[in-house]
Write a protein that binds this DNA or RNA. Structure first.
Lengths: 239, 239
DNA sequence: TGCCCTTCTGGTCAGAACGACACTAAGATG
DNA sequence: CATCTTAGTGTCGTTCTGACCAGAAGGGCA
């Protein structure tokens, strides 16, 4: 760790008293069943604060921006340091800079990320907990607002991009993909219509393999690498 | 002016040498005819730099974030200070933070704005010039990239929101509204189909007045205030 | 073995949305 | 008054979408 992490933000004596500091935080979404074998739910990892502003409360993973790293790199680094997670999808969400959002002036560049089931580090690091987004505790700073906004973006973006694949493994059935959509959008989708839509979109490549369960086996699909998860316009590399 | 503006960013002695500083810039779009009576073009105001990094080059209007103001307030303030413009629509675009985007470490929170024809300050302040987005000179820092991204967002957003109204006056004909869309999207739209779409969207209120020209008078419409220009989700107030 | 249950998968059908285009309305111009 | 140009309406065929039906293909169980 090259710099103090966000949790140690009590007395920034090393920095000029009147300076604005830049922090980077990330909202990480993963789908996991509420109980074993149950339906999926949108969950995210939070970090318990051990220092003064909002000590003991849960907060988004993050840390201070190092002067020698880009914003995206800072998001990846602080994510790894606090939670051990390396996400499959990472995108800038918004810059939060209300004057009163922290006792000292902090501008937070917030990213949001998606991870696949196999990327979930269950009992990775101390002070990390996974929460159902529908049952969040009161978070530190303005982090509840931030999560709300990230959720809104996730639900929006799932409708016009292919980011749902960022929440799945390499091979999956259409039923599995459909459940991802259903979980995010919180409503049932017709299996036949869903199939038609996603097949016509050209983002899926059928394989010869099948997932055998207790009923008719379902064909496994792969994600078409030629199609970007989301159209990010002229921003090919994150800044 | 309470702080040095971005143009005076040569030697920030007052700030710790290793600190990251936060700047705020804005891409302001307005539609104006290339020549009198001609078709509209997307244009934006730029400020000529008078200090060292990229002295003499054109740059986006902006300035340093004051420690006592929110990001949106800083955007409005620096906009007014450098160009005298108070936009009708202002939204955060992206935070740019590549390490090498400036000789000293600067994170720029970039906003984008729309202004109506009557809000254009033609010969307002020295060192301000208006440029056609299709004919931009090489800009300071990474500002060309930033403009490209802002244009991409503008063209995207005009398709699924009502921000086009941010570029028009209070009352307008459907032909005028259509020309706004045509200019932004750079393609012709069928007048009949355009009318049907926009009338069914419920965002327009017909008035009793008409715009009389050299042909059949066209009905004037007002913008329905009940409908937001763009759905910004949980972010009702800019941070 | 044979029946049933569930899910997978392909198909139909009606309504909405959309693009192309023909046509009427209304004022300006000469 | 004839004509020109733009404003505004209607129509038609294609595509997209949601609701629903039906056959296919396995496992579970009597």
């Amino acid at each position: 760790m090259t710099r103090t992490s966000l949790e140690n933000a009590a007395a920034p004596e090393a920095v000029a008293e009147d300076a604005t500091r830049v922090a980077v935080s990330t909202v990480i979404f993963a789908l996991r069943p509420r109980e074993p074998e149950g339906p999926l739910a949108v969950t995210l990892p939070l970090v318990r604060r051990t220092r003064d502003p909002h000590e003991g409360q849960w907060a988004l993973p993050g840390g201070w921006l190092d002067i020698r790293e880009s914003l995206g790199a800072a998001a990846s680094r602080t994510l790894a340091e606090t939670t051990g997670i390396a996400p499959s999808y990472l995108e800038q969400l918004y810059a939060f800079g209300a004057v009163d959002r922290s006792p000292t002036r902090v501008v937070s560049i917030v990213y949001w990320a998606l991870i696949r089931p196999d990327e979930i580090v269950e009992d990775g690091i101390e002070n990390v907990g996974w929460f159902d987004v529908e049952r969040l505790p009161p978070l530190a700073f303005d982090h509840n607002e931030i999560v709300d906004y990230a959720l809104w973006r996730l639900r929006n973006k799932v409708g016009y991009s292919r980011i749902a694949h960022g929440l799945l493994g390499d091979e999956f059935t259409l039923a599995e993909l459909r459940e991802v959509y259903q979980t995010i959008l919180d409503r049932k989708l017709d299996p036949a219509n869903f199939r038609r839509q996603v097949e016509n979109s050209g983002t899926l490549i059928p394989t010869d393999r099948h997932r055998t369960g207790s009923h008719r086996p379902a064909r496994l699909y792969r994600y078409n690498q030629d199609v970007e998860l989301a159209d990010r316009g002229p921003l090919s590399t994150p800044h």
